[in-house]
């Protein structure tokens, strides 16, 4: 019979998992609304306006529509893979959050118990996230292949090539951070970013790793299939790419994955380069607030970029990945190494 403390720990982990996944499940609901509003206002429109005040209930209406829509599978599709592909995409998107810290420890006031704001602090955290995040691509590839449609297949192929190209640059840009902080654990990486340099510059990795940040950000944009790198679902030439044959809930799973990937990319950017939950200069430390604020900014930035930049051509995408980002990231590692020596 395990003692009461381990039981509480286990219960706590279960509660944390449930809370995190509930938050993740509901997060795309406001995000779709925000994205459409941002799109609208950037294009001098209003965005959704009819369902609820300022269209705030629009995502709910969309959700209801998606739930009651007919679930169509193409006649010659690979039925099993077609069904499982959205899950292949979605599960890794959730699994990534097992290793992501949202803050250090907080003490719950009434029961006076310390609770860590992460599900687990893996000592290979960043590797785990990159590895599991990489699995998400299977959903796209298999979804594209199983649909048995030309556009979807092209989307899947593009996606696989793109993922492989940019994953390398993404990982290499993270190595710079890992080298400076001497740990693969995200918790340690964030802890090392507290304090200041020379008393007035925040000791964030963006200061020591500007090239790393630029590469990471660009590669992350490509990894999560956002404009300007959204070639797998290029509306202009592929209709909707890999999810062109999907409808109803399966389609919404893909959408969910996409938004979660965006959140993950923002969270990683904040943790790796913007000091995680450390407050900016001379601001009071509030447990989760700064983290959420920074992540929110990056989510907004992703949306902002989406409605600012046009899409790259496919060969441009490949040249950027292999001929610019990869050499630059290697250079970055070299520079970091020299600097550390």
């Amino acid at each position: 019979m395990p003692d009461i403390n381990t039981l509480i720990e286990v219960a706590l982990i279960i509660v944390k998992v449930i809370v995190v996944s509930l938050i993740l499940f509901t997060l795309p609901i406001p995000l779709t609304w925000i994205e459409r509003k941002v799109a609208g206002h950037i294009q001098v429109r209003l965005g959704p306006f009819r369902v609820g005040p300022h269209g705030i209930l629009q995502p709910v209406a969309d959700m209801i529509k998606l739930m009651f829509k007919e679930d169509i599978a193409p006649d010659k599709a690979d039925k099993w893979l077609f069904k499982f592909a959205p899950l292949f995409a979605m599960v890794p998107a959730f699994a990534v959050y097992a290793a992501i810290p949202f803050g250090d420890k907080i003490t719950i006031p009434i029961i006076n118990k310390e609770v860590t704001l992460y599900i687990s602090d893996m000592n290979v955290g960043i590797l785990y996230i990159l590895a599991v995040g990489g699995i998400s691509v299977y959903g796209i590839i298999l979804g594209g292949w199983a649909s048995n449609s030309k556009y979807a297949l092209l989307g899947g192929i593009r996606s696989s090539a793109q993922m492989i190209s940019y994953e390398i640059a993404l990982t290499f840009s993270c190595i710079g951070v890992v080298m400076t902080s001497n740990s693969l654990s995200l918790l340690d990486i964030v802890k090392l970013q507290s304090g200041t340099i020379l008393g007035f510059i925040p000791h964030w990795n963006i200061i020591c790793q500007p090239i790393g940040f630029a590469i990471f950000f660009i590669a992350a944009l490509a990894e999560i299939n956002r404009i300007p790198f959204d070639l797998p679902e290029d509306e202009g030439s592929l209709a909707a790419g890999y999810h062109v044959e999907y409808s109803a809930m399966k389609f919404s799973f893909f959408m969910l994955t996409e938004y979660l990937a965006m959140v993950t990319a923002s969270v990683l950017t904040v943790i790796l380069f913007f000091g995680g939950w450390n407050a900016p200069l001379f601001m009071p430390e509030i447990p989760i607030f700064w983290f959420v604020a920074k992540v929110g900014f990056f989510i907004y930035l992703f949306m902002w970029i989406r409605f600012t930049l046009p899409r790259y051509r496919y060969d441009q995408l490949m040249t950027i990945g292999w001929k610019i980002l990869l050499p630059l990231s290697l250079l970055n590692i070299l520079l970091t190494g020299l600097f550390l020596l």
């Binding site: 990489g134 699995i135 298999l142 292949w145 696989s160 492989i164």
Partner: peptide, 15 residues
Amino acid sequence: QVFIYVGAVVVLFLF
């Protein structure tokens, strides 16, 4: 293992 084999090698196979 996940990173290299699952994330890259099999993706290449599929490709």
